[in-house]
């Protein structure tokens, strides 16, 4: 297993722990000392770096989370790319192309961050294609009108930012640094999405209706992006203890709702929740119950586009195999020959 191999490599390379502990490979005492050093580093809000010792489960959790994050960027290109060839103005087309390009770039940063944990991009893509690793449930919904591009920018990127800004302080250095770069670009996309919806909302009655319809369809799936409620979230407690996560799913979801309500008002659009209202006592908005059955079905692969998204991803990969083989063959021919004087 790649993670175990990497673990071994990390220990061998370690030599001396961050607190000066001598890391003698293979002894229990040394492992205990390494574990204590790790815990102390996390407690002191220090960053864990690729060559540092880390618990196997910490490594595995990070690989799972970063890979899922990378996969989401890559699959997330599809619902938006669906509208590139139909964008209604050249300015909007340029913005959308730049955004989808950024997402491919984010996927690249994140696969690189995952690789520092001893896995490889090919292995991760293979797990995505075979369904052993997941991507965000949101991208299993279809983009049916141009306004969906705006709703994705405003709501989906908005939810992603709410989730991801705290990750800029994640205990694992390479992930935290990738998130700093990604969050800057995501905030830009979110503002562009908002501005797109605003133009529609203030446009013709047909455009306004298109914007409202998109928000109606994307609102609840966006709230689901924060994951299951706290009492059903299997990874949360440990991730918070390790400072991979900084806030619970429900806290972040609440924060997102509180941000969106006034934005929807200034957009001149409504949110599709009759139970949504300000709660003076809590200082937060109350909101209606999420349909967790739908969420679980989408996660199980039964959402509207699960099949289509994975099929397209695999097709791109399979049809590109000869290109990757050609590049590898060419590189081999031109790097292993006799040295050129």
């Amino acid at each position: 297993m790649a993670t175990a191999a990497a673990q071994q490599t990390a220990r061998t390379q370690l030599g001396t722990g961050r607190d000066g502990t001598v890391g003698t490979v293979g002894t229990t005492d040394a492992d205990d000392a390494l574990a204590r050093a790790f815990d102390a580093a996390v407690a002191a809000d220090e960053r864990i770096e690729p060559r540092d010792w880390m618990p196997d489960a910490y490594r595995a959790t990070l690989v799972r989370q970063i890979a899922q994050h990378a996969h989401s960027e890559i699959i997330g290109m599809q619902p938006e790319a669906n509208w590139i060839t139909r964008a209604p103005s050249l300015r909007r087309k340029a913005i959308l192309m730049a955004k989808v390009q950024d997402e491919a770039g984010h996927g690249l940063y994140l696969y690189s961050a995952a690789e520092t944990l001893g896995t490889g991009r090919d292995e991760l893509l293979d797990k995505l294609h075979s369904g052993r690793q997941k991507y965000s449930s949101i991208f299993n919904y279809p983009t049916l009108t141009w306004a969906d591009v705006g709703a994705i920018g405003w709501l989906v990127d908005g939810a992603a930012i709410t989730n991801q800004v705290p990750l800029c302080r994640c205990s694992y250095g390479p992930y935290a640094r990738a998130m700093v770069r990604i969050c800057k670009e995501e905030s830009f996309h979110q503002r562009q999405g908002y501005e797109l919806l605003l133009a529609l909302s203030k446009g013709t009655p047909e455009q306004h209706a298109m914007a409202q319809d998109a928000v109606d369809r994307w609102w609840w799936p966006s709230l689901m992006m924060f994951g299951p409620p706290d009492d059903e979230s299997s990874h949360s407690a440990q991730s918070m203890a390790w400072k991979i996560k900084r806030h619970s799913n429900d806290e972040l979801r609440q924060r997102f709702v509180d941000i969106c309500v006034p934005q929807a008002e200034s957009l001149g659009l409504t949110l599709p929740d009759p139970d949504l209202r300000w709660n003076e006592e809590r200082g937060h908005h109350d909101f209606g119950a999420i349909d967790w059955t739908e969420f679980r079905e989408v996660l199980k692969g039964n959402g509207p586009c699960n099949e289509q998204r994975i099929t397209q991803r695999k097709r791109a990969h399979d049809e590109g195999a000869w290109v990757r083989e050609a590049a590898a063959a060419h590189a081999a021919k031109h790097t292993t020959g006799a040295p050129q004087a």
Partner: peptide, 21 residues
């Protein structure tokens, strides 16, 4: 632009989009 989401490697998603832009 029609290539986006269909390129043989991620680096080409970026490169083709860049040229298209």
């Amino acid at each position: 632009g029609e290539w986006m989401g269909h390129a043989p490697v991620l680096e080409e998603e970026v490169a083709l989009a860049n040229i298209a832009l």
